[in-house]
Write a protein that binds this DNA or RNA. Structure first.
Length: 504
RNA sequence: CGGGGCGUAGCUCAGCCUGGUAGAGCGCUUGCUUUGGGAGCAAGAAGUCGUCAGUUCGAAUCUGGCCGCCCCGACCA
């Protein structure tokens, strides 16, 4: 039996359905019995562990420390910052009871009835600004206590109307950085620093190019003064917000009363920031790099970078082949890539070779090695790169492979970034008129990122969003977008182009 | 919360219109064959047909209530 592609439908045919099939075929996650919540399976969680480890190192390098705050937030905390509370009001899970009472039913079964009503309900954190703010208020007394640079790895819950695995789930894993500073300048610098950390991480670890920029007022985080975002383009040419960094001004300091005695002996409010990325990064990665045979995981974050497939056609040489594979794996693990020991897996399962091979293709392992009796004799290995076709295979001397393996992984990492960058650049257009804009996003057109001069109002921005389902993804920070022009809608002067796109 | 659809084996679904004791493909188990490639043949395990009630001699099938899920909108990392 042979199929043209491992995943059906293909990306061209039906991208959303392709995405769901890839998540399943690559064994990354599944829907759970709890609506909107996912079970992240080992292969998917392995990606998250690598993301976590590598980002965490960057947070530490930039002076942050980890801490942990409660899952439950007193309802009253959310009431302290009106704009923030309203922003999350429609998606909060609320805990109202603290015990259950067993109630015997006439049919012999037992029903558990919530009892012990709470005086004040708790909200399951949709984000932790308020509760961390309360802690900060206790911790900060003097300007000498600042800056306070804290990160937390946690789960949060936002009761989403329409969940999709990794992209939008009711519960998701993320990290949220929260910092407090003496001055606005320092806080803004922190916001931008972490924004840059995210952009670099996406580019160098996930092989996804992003456009760093600021959000418009309409798209800002509820309660923030400024929101910075990294926007990526995925293969259906839609934009996805992959990470955000917020300058919160003194809004949350005011709400939580984070005050300190300054150098001038006056009481002052701190300036705070918050920033986060979530398991959505995994969804972004799938849509950025996947092909019609499954996901392709960039080597830096792949749970296994190399899978060795023993080829055992005869029972009497089977053990010899497996021993040779184990020995090769051991040798490989002594090398490092991206500062970490190579992650190598030997798939010894007693399955047919082809079936095994396709499984790892679908799971997106960067390198597959095949080693059989003939390879042992000829001291070679068969090497398959996931960024090339499923049939592409090269027999190379084992010693050469061992010498070049990290270069090979880097080459795959680079080729993924290159491919993603080319896709984005090919679908990013400077347009000048409303007609061009409508044609770009209209029925039947490809879409993509439209770089437009913009000087419209919030209401005009909203109208475009409603009429065309297109929003301003960001106001880019890079100089390459700066140029004089006139707004395509209002004709008013503009000094920079902004990115319009349909988004996830 | 509006509009549509669906609940039958681990998964995807057929059967329902026209009521008569449960089916397929994939997956799983075992055996034989095959083996540098998602294999073939044979045998086998597996379902209170979402739930509660009604109609009926008899309900997966007809009627009604309830529950759950999916898709399309509004909301969003």
């Amino acid at each position: 039996m042979s199929q043209a592609t491992a995943i059906s439908p293909t990306r061209d045919k039906d991208f959303p359905e392709w995405y769901q099939q890839v998540v399943r075929a690559a064994d990354l996650a599944e829907n759970s019995e709890v609506r909107g919540c996912m079970v992240i399976k080992p292969w998917g969680y392995g990606i998250w562990e690598n993301i976590q480890k590598q980002l965490d190192a960057k947070f530490k390098e930039t002076g942050h420390v980890n801490a942990y705050f409660p899952l439950l937030i007193p309802l009253s905390y959310l009431e302290k910052e009106a704009e923030h509370a309203e922003g999350f009001a429609t998606e909060c899970a609320v805990v109202t009871h603290h015990r259950l009472e067993a109630q015997k039913q006439p049919d012999g079964t037992t029903k558990m009835i919530p009892s012990g009503k709470l005086e004040e309900p708790f909200v399951i954190r949709p984000t932790s600004e308020t509760i961390i703010g309360a802690a900060f208020a206790r911790w900060v007394q003097s300007y000498r206590d600042l800056p306070l640079l804290i990160n937390q790895w946690a789960n949060v819950m936002r009761w989403e109307m329409r969940p999709r695995l990794f992209l939008r789930t009711a519960e998701f894993l993320w990290q949220e950085g929260h910092t407090a500073h003496e001055t606005a300048e320092e806080a803004i610098e922190e916001t931008k620093l972490m924004h840059k950390v995210y952009a670099d991480f996406l580019r160098n670890h996930l092989a996804i190019p992003v456009i760093p920029g600021a959000k418009t007022e309409n798209e800002r985080f509820p309660g923030a003064v400024d929101t910075y975002t990294v926007e990526a383009m995925v293969q259906d040419k839609k934009a996805i917000q992959a990470g955000t960094s917020h300058y919160l001004g003194q809004n949350f300091a005011k709400a939580a009363n984070i005050q300190f005695l300054g150098r001038d002996n006056t009481r002052q409010l701190a300036h705070t920031t918050s920033w986060g990325v979530s398991t959505r990064l995994i969804g972004t990665l799938i849509m950025a790099h996947g092909d019609d045979d499954g996901v392709i995981i960039p080597p830096r974050v792949a749970p296994s970078q190399i899978v060795i497939l023993p080829v055992t056609p005869k029972a009497d040489t089977r053990q010899e082949v497996i021993d040779a594979c184990e020995a090769l794996a051991k040798t490989l693990r002594m090398q490092t890539f991206g500062g970490e020991p190579l992650r190598v897996h030997v798939d010894k399962r007693d399955l047919q070779g082809g079936a095994k091979n396709w499984e790892w293709i679908k799971k997106g392992v960067p390198l597959r090695l095949e080693m059989g009796p003939r390879d042992i004799t000829s001291r070679s290995v068969a090497v398959c790169r996931r960024d090339q076709g499923p049939k592409a295979k090269e027999f190379v001397p084992k010693e050469d492979f061992l010498r070049n393996v990290t270069d090979l992984l880097q080459d795959i990492q680079d080729s993924l970034l290159k491919r993603a960058t080319e896709l984005r650049d090919a679908n990013m257009k400077k347009l000048d008129t409303l007609e061009e804009f409508k044609a770009f996003f209209g029925e039947g057109s490809e879409g993509g990122f439209a770089l437009m001069h913009w000087a419209g109002s919030n209401e005009e921005e909203d109208k475009i969003a409603t009429d065309m389902k297109v929003t301003i993804r960001c106001i880019p920070l890079d100089d390459e977008f700066a140029e004089e022009g006139t707004c395509f809608l209002t004709g008013k002067p503009s000094s920079k182009r902004v990115v319009f796109a349909k988004s996830y």
